[in-house]
Design a protein around this nucleic acid. Structure first.
Lengths: 133, 133
DNA sequence: TTAGATGCAAAGGGTTTGCAACGTC
DNA sequence: GACGTTGCAAACCCTTTGCATCTAA
């Protein structure tokens, strides 16, 4: 989308933010990422985290998710995949099932529009939240 | 979710907000709804609109959508259906194709979690945005 | 009569941005 | 050396909330 922007520099901040995101499957919030990065760069600012998350998203390195919450979560897995959102605890999990590419074609026929991709989120109860304890 | 709440009263405000939402397929923002309702109830407040949208959502009368934007859009169609989001103009359209219920079962097997429902959003270019003019 | 709903306005909370200093290429 | 990036803090903006008043049932 923003192709007018110049070349991207790989700063220490950007590298560590991406590193944090690549090393978790928890789909964290910006603030969680901020806290983690602060462990390595104590004086980093929240603004920098947001700016880098935006840049990394534009670079296609990460994904931004906002499933119902008032705030975003970020996914360090750039590969196309589905998500599961627990209705009770709000956690977001990756779903290990193939993306159904035929849906794009079906939606394209139904709308008459060009469809590039789709996102799917499943809602339910995760293991922890459905156990009676 | 919020079943502890008492009986809901059908006030003039709530009725007209629902009416506005039922009579559009444009998936409007809270502010757009506010402006529309103001034509009939000039002194209604934004807070009331938000409170009613929340209540109507809990009643299952409407849906809240937030596909990438920093703000919510609302859908007066309570029937389960997919959406199309235009990458260029940001408009949200309904997709007239059957909801694939088998996906829930597949996701349930893949995760081991209880899946109640899923949401799907298709991204691409709508007719207006893909024409060269 | 009474608990839920409204209007108003202030507060909340995640995200963005202006600016001067800094760091990467 | 140029220009993208950072830290800081203020600004933004959508949404929520406290409170006195009002109203549907």
């Amino acid at each position: 989308m923003n192709k007018t922007k110049g070349f991207q520099r790989m700063t220490k901040q950007r590298r560590i933010i991406l590193e944090v995101l690549r090393n978790t499957t928890s789909h964290p919030t910006a603030d969680w990422i901020y806290e983690r990065v602060k462990e390595k760069i104590p004086n980093i600012s929240l603004g920098t985290v947001y700016r880098n998350l935006k840049t990394l998203k534009e670079m296609g390195e990460i994904m931004e998710l906002n499933y119902g919450s008032s705030f975003s979560r970020f996914d360090g897995n750039p590969k196309d995949h589905y998500h599961f959102v627990c209705e009770k605890c709000g956690k977001v999990y990756d779903v290990n099932m193939p993306v159904d590419e035929t849906l794009n074609e079906k939606a394209s026929q139904a709308t008459g529009y060009k469809v590039y991709y789709h996102r799917c989120e499943f809602h339910g109860l995760c293991k922890e939240c459905s156990s009676p304890d």
